[in-house]
């Protein structure tokens, strides 16, 4: 569903991403991992056309250079790691905007406001109670669920999540990842997510890509990518040992 060929992104002389190629297929959940500055978020920015890039990005066999914003949004949706809403929109306002790409071309700008997709998105993310509440009053977890609901309402075939649970506590981490897991099971789609937490990546993903200094160190099935040697090379530490130490603390 996603095919990326020779993607390179440069800021001045600095190569943030250097000639990377990979593809993602239906039903896959690709976890993009790597240390800070590896270029993970830049992939998201390139795919959403927020930075200039060289190389080719295909979504469902279509080069995104030829896709209009609205056509691209029908295929791919992005969830950012943080949100800074300027005014007191309601939760529902934000979720409804997810239908923007699917609105009619008529002079009135009414969406299919009672769309079952909006209702369903609100329901599965558990936002019904607070749907008319101002987003300025929400907690970080509720806000992230609101934007996840917007993404579900948008109903794209490709979901891109940029560190979706970065500032969230454990409860919400589990909630968001489980919601996405269910979504993949129920829909013909694929997910690419950038994660810091290797345990989460290992638990939920089936594919993984390990990045370092803008280059792919290894990509493939999660179990292959998270090999002792590669992780040690990239993170400069014994990742397995550390993870086991951490798990040890919680043994009954």
């Amino acid at each position: 569903m996603i095919k990326i060929n020779n993607l390179t992104v440069e800021f001045g002389d600095k190569k943030i991403l250097n000639d990377i190629s990979f593809s993602v297929h239906e039903g896959d959940w690709l976890m993009v991992v790597g240390p800070n500055g590896a270029g993970k978020s830049t992939i998201v920015n390139a795919v959403s056309k927020a930075v200039p890039y060289t190389g080719d990005i295909y979504l469902k066999e279509k080069n995104i250079r030829d896709l209009k914003s609205i056509e691209q949004a029908k295929i791919m949706g992005v969830l950012n790691q943080s949100h800074n809403v300027a005014y007191s929109f309601t939760v529902e306002d934000i979720v409804k905007l997810g239908r923007y790409a699917n609105k009619g071309k008529f002079l009135d700008s009414y969406f299919d406001t009672n769309s079952s997709k909006v209702e369903r998105a609100i329901e599965i993310t558990g936002l019904n109670e607070i749907r008319y509440q101002s987003v300025l009053t929400l907690s970080g977890g509720e806000l992230q669920r609101t934007f996840l609901a917007q993404l579900f309402a948008q109903d794209p075939e490709i979901l891109v999540l940029d560190e979706p649970t970065n500032h969230l506590d454990l409860v919400y981490q589990k909630q968001i990842f489980s919601l996405v897991e269910d979504w993949i099971k129920e829909n013909k789609c694929c997910v690419v997510s950038i994660v810091h937490d290797l345990s989460l990546a290992k638990k939920y993903g089936n594919k993984a890509m390990l990045l370092n200094h803008g280059e792919i160190v290894r990509t493939g099935d999660v179990s292959d990518v998270f090999s002792k040697e590669d992780l040690k090379k990239v993170y400069n530490m014994d990742v397995y040992g550390w993870m086991n130490d951490l798990a040890e603390v919680w043994k009954d």
Binding site: S48, K49, A50, K68, S69, I70, E71, Q72, A73, K74, G77, V78, L79, N80, H83, N84, V85, A86, Y87, F89, D93, I94, L97, G98, Y100, A101, K103, L107, S109, F111, F147, Q150, L151, Q154
Partner: peptide, 24 residues
């Protein structure tokens, strides 16, 4: 006025506007 939806999206966030398909 025809751009009311786009302006809503901008007010929520420029990145978000791009994500939902607004030609920013």
């Amino acid at each position: 006025l025809r751009h009311a939806d786009e302006l809503n999206a901008f007010a929520i966030g420029e990145d978000n506007a791009r994500n939902i398909g607004v030609d920013v």
